[in-house]
Design a protein around this nucleic acid. Structure first.
Length: 253
DNA sequence: AACAATAGCAACCGCCACGGA
DNA sequence: CTCCGTGGCGGTTGCTATTGT
């Protein structure tokens, strides 16, 4: 038994969306909100698979999208975040209000990669290309790993470097910090986290990145943001392997 | 003007994590 | 604990627009 397809391919449209399809999707989501994507196409009268609807909505139709060119500040922020997070486009998008992971991914591949290469920087490693020709180091000693840990933990994007971006987006705290799961302050949650392998259902991604009191913040911790349902389910800090879901808090209000 | 090459981006595909049964 | 359905993510594809010859 193979994996069941996400939709009945024989009866679904593919390719570019028409204006009418867009209208149907928008109308449906405005009326019912983002619900079960699998059943949405049928309910909305669309011959599309749920995944396709979700993608179209998230990447193109959402009302809070910021269309248009990326600013220099956004450029630099993307580069910094990529150097920290790698190809975690959804995480990077979470730090750029109004931008989608797909948009950022495309922008990276078409513009920023070339920009970095022209600066003599390897876009994958963010190291000077010359450095790549040095003989590879042998297994990193523990002290080096510790240094890298420290660097990650204390990594900050300086506000002054971001300049106008911060002024334009006061909610965007550019003091980005990656830190190990925080257990001490919330003993009950810590217990839940331990039981679920480090996951938390109440500590949102915004908080874990140091953007408490922001619009992105959606956890229910006192003194935190205004809520909205986004959660961080896991964040493999050491490997920067994030299984972060639904952190954008973009439900229709 | 016609064609080829390249760039840009929307959309698709396959995999994986999560949560509920 | 395991299985399965679903949503989400990252990589890739393919179409269209633009630029070069």
């Amino acid at each position: 038994m193979g994996r069941s397809p996400c939709c009945e391919k024989a009866h679904t449209n593919k390719g570019a969306w028409t204006k009418e399809e867009d209208d149907r999707l928008i109308t449906y989501i405005r009326a019912h909100g983002e619900g079960c994507w699998r059943s949405l196409p049928k309910a909305a009268g669309l011959l599309r698979c749920g995944k396709s609807c979700r993608l179209r909505w998230i990447n193109y139709l959402r009302p809070d999208l910021k269309r248009g060119n990326f600013t220099v500040e956004e450029d630099e922020l993307i580069i910094k975040l990529h150097s920290l997070l790698g190809n975690k486009w959804s995480l990077i998008a979470g730090r750029l209000p109004g931008r989608t992971d797909n948009e950022i991914k495309n922008y990276w591949n078409t513009h920023i990669r070339r920009k970095l290469l022209s600066r003599g920087i390897d876009p994958a490693t963010h190291q000077p290309i010359n450095e790549l020709h040095k003989p590879p180091a042998t297994a990193a000693p523990l002290s080096d790993l510790r240094d890298q840990m420290d660097a990650l933990v204390s990594f900050r994007i300086k506000k002054e470097e971001a300049g106008t971006e911060h002024q334009q987006c006061p909610d965007l705290n550019l003091e980005l910090r990656i830190s190990p799961p925080h257990y001490g302050q919330f003993p009950l949650q810590a217990d839940q986290q331990m039981k679920s392998g480090g996951r938390s259902d109440s500590h949102c991604f915004a908080c874990s990145l140091g953007v408490q009191d922001s619009k992105e913040c959606s956890c229910r911790i006192e003194g935190c943001g205004d809520g909205g349902g986004s959660t961080v389910s896991s964040y493999d800090f050491l490997g920067l392997k994030a299984g972060v879901r639904d952190f954008r808090g973009l439900e229709m209000k």
